[in-house]
């Protein structure tokens, strides 16, 4: 139960207006810190729901595919410049962000990841890597401002963050591919 509680604390911290305002004031922090941390908060809280409603998860997410699909859809949705913009201008959309990322994306990621087979896991990571490279490319080399609320320099910064994250994932994939943990553990 402990971790669910910490997840809740993290969630409350993230939605507190001064914290949220600060994080949303920089594009890269908005997308690469606030959003992932909301997902992480959800992942921590997931334990609570898994214990509370085991049958629900059993019934709807037995092989992890529905959950991970929901996760992917939400992630892609929130990576569009347009949705970020709207989260800043419309309270309704901002509310949706604070609910969808932890409670839909975070929980379903936690519940699905363990259920996926290695092929599923790797395909997810690879697709996100490709997506991140694409997004990085768009954000860095786009000649125009994509978000009404953020300047071009912020957009470029975000693009680099995407590229670096992609590089990080490639390193991870390579590490997984070349190193067999069972040789060491």
């Amino acid at each position: 139960m402990n971790q669910s509680f910490y997840g809740l604390l993290l969630y409350i911290f993230l939605v507190t207006p001064p914290v949220a305002n600060f994080m949303e004031s920089l594009m890269v922090i908005h997308m690469h810190m606030q959003m992932p941390m909301l997902v992480i908060a959800g992942m921590l809280m997931a334990r609570f729901f898994q214990k509370r409603f085991p049958r629900f998860f059993e019934k709807w997410n037995s092989n992890g595919v529905p959950g991970i699909t929901l996760f992917v859809i939400l992630m892609v949705y929130w990576m569009l410049p347009r949705t970020m913009d709207e989260a800043l201008t419309s309270t309704l959309v901002e509310g949706f962000k604070f609910i969808s990322l932890p409670f839909l994306a975070g929980i379903s990621l936690r519940d699905s990841w363990k259920k996926l087979n290695p092929f599923g896991k790797n395909s997810i990571i690879i697709s996100f890597t490709v997506l991140f490279i694409g997004l990085g490319w768009i954000y860095i080399w786009s000649p125009v401002q994509l978000c009404n609320n953020y300047l071009v320099i912020e957009q470029v910064t975000l693009g680099w963050a995407f590229l670096l994250t992609a590089i990080g994932m490639i390193v991870y994939l390579g590490y997984n591919f070349f190193i067999d943990p069972s040789a060491y553990e």
């Binding site: 920089l26 890269v28 690469h32 810190m33 320099i153 470029v156 910064t157 680099w160 963050a161 670096l164 994250t165 990080g168 390193v171 991870y172 590490y175």
Partner: peptide
């Protein structure tokens, strides 16, 4: 990997600004 993420978080903003 976590270290690299932390480094990226810290350095992307200022370095992009310095360069761009």
């Amino acid at each position: 990997v976590i270290m690299l993420i932390v480094v990226a978080m810290a350095y992307v903003i200022p370095l992009t600004e310095f360069i761009v």
